[in-house]
Amino acid sequence: MNVLILGGTGVISREIVAQLLSAGHEVVVFNRGTRKLPFSSDVEWIIGDKSDNQSFNEAVKKRTFDVVIDMISFNEADARSTVSTFNERAGQLIMCSSVAAYKRPYKSAPIKEDAEELFDNPEFAYAFQKAEMERYLQRNIGKGQLPVTIIRPSLTYGIGGSNLGVLRQNYNIVQRIRNNKPLLMFGDGTTPWGFTFAPDLAKAFVGAVGNKRTYNQAYHATNEDVHIWNNLYEEFGNIIGIEPQIVHISSELLVKANPSLFAHLVFEKSYSGLFDNSKIKRDIPGFEASISLNEGLRMMLNWYESEGSIVDPEKEQLENRLTDIYMEWSKQMEQFEA
């Protein structure tokens, strides 16, 4: 099939491109052209800026596609632009949303799509805007618009990503363990979670391509292995052979220290991240997120070391300050035991 990907170079979308090519699809990518893929010669590139509606329409107005996969819409206006552009020029639209779009607390455990409502608190803008995007798409389903498939990733790690760890500190995790420096964890670290990796998530998008069972449906696509957040750092420690030091500070206090960095902990990560994937397995036979936490973190470690990843100095300094405060507070608390 002839598939257009809006985006195509991100952590998830580069995996989608690779798997589409492996499946024999013709792939076109639309983006600003600032990053290239290792398989750039195997895809057609359209250079443009989707946020500029006029140039976006101009760039694709003479093209038709069997499927359009939109990885770069984050709000209702973005989705409106995609729908209006391809309503008569595509056979299917696959939209990347997020499990952040679910309202908390959840109504089901593990979480099922049809049991949940959409997020309605503007205070957490990312989740609210993704939910608004979905509300717009769902209002138009079945009203003469092109068929829409919505896929909601959970927290997903992969090559090129910068979102691993409580501070999204990536390689900082490895170097702190190796240097015997404490790592910061929110709460008590026992919130249940399923950690997903990009090659697995990409299977959902590729499996939905041209799949009529997925038309006008919404799915999450996640790893179903049961872990807790502490396991993320403990497994890195297992891989490099050093037991990590983990200190725990409440999410509420972390938000006070850095609202922009830690708000997601209160709105998202403080709730269980275990999802029931029965629906997507029903409609995309063979879908399975099979990369274990150990395998996925080994993939990330190999990337860090092969690419010569560096430590983020600002996040390193922040983690030092917060863990130092914790250690000092712990010493003061010991006085109550004396």
Rank of each mutant, 00 (worst) to 15 (best):
M1I: 09
I5T: 09
I5V: 15
T9F: 07
V11P: 11
I12H: 05
E15N: 06
E15Q: 13
I16S: 02
A18K: 15
A23W: 02
V27C: 02
V27E: 00
V28N: 03
N31R: 08
L37E: 00
P38W: 02
F39M: 09
S40T: 08
S40M: 05
S40C: 09
E44A: 12
E44Q: 10
W45C: 00
I46M: 09
G48Q: 00
G48A: 04
G48W: 00
S55Y: 00
F56E: 08
A59D: 01
T64A: 06
T64P: 01
F65N: 01
V68R: 03
D70Q: 01
I72K: 02
F74I: 06
A77V: 11
D78M: 08
A79T: 00
F86W: 05
E88R: 11
R89E: 00
A90K: 01
G91C: 04
M95P: 06
M95W: 01
S97F: 00
Y102P: 03
P105G: 01
E113C: 06
D114V: 05
A115V: 04
F119L: 11
N121M: 12
F124R: 01
E132N: 13
L137Y: 03
T149C: 10
I151V: 14
R152T: 09
P153F: 04
G161P: 13
N163T: 15
L164H: 07
L167I: 12
Y171D: 11
N172P: 12
V174A: 03
I177T: 15
N179E: 13
N179H: 03
N180Y: 02
L184P: 05
D188W: 04
D188L: 07
G189I: 09
G189L: 07
T190I: 05
P192D: 01
G194F: 07
P199R: 04
A204D: 03
V209N: 03
R213A: 15
N216V: 05
Q217G: 13
Q217I: 08
A218K: 06
H220G: 07
H220M: 05
A221M: 10
A221V: 06
N223W: 10
V226A: 14
W229F: 15
N230L: 07
N231V: 10
Y233E: 10
I239C: 11
P244Q: 00
Q245Y: 12
L254A: 08
V255E: 02
K256Y: 03
P259I: 02
A263W: 00
L265D: 08
V266G: 07
N277F: 03
P285H: 03
I291Q: 09
I291T: 14
S292Q: 03
E295V: 13
R298G: 10
L301Q: 11
W303M: 12
S306M: 12
V311W: 08
E314I: 15
K315L: 15
Q317Y: 14
E319F: 05
D324H: 06
M327W: 14
E328R: 15
Q335D: 14
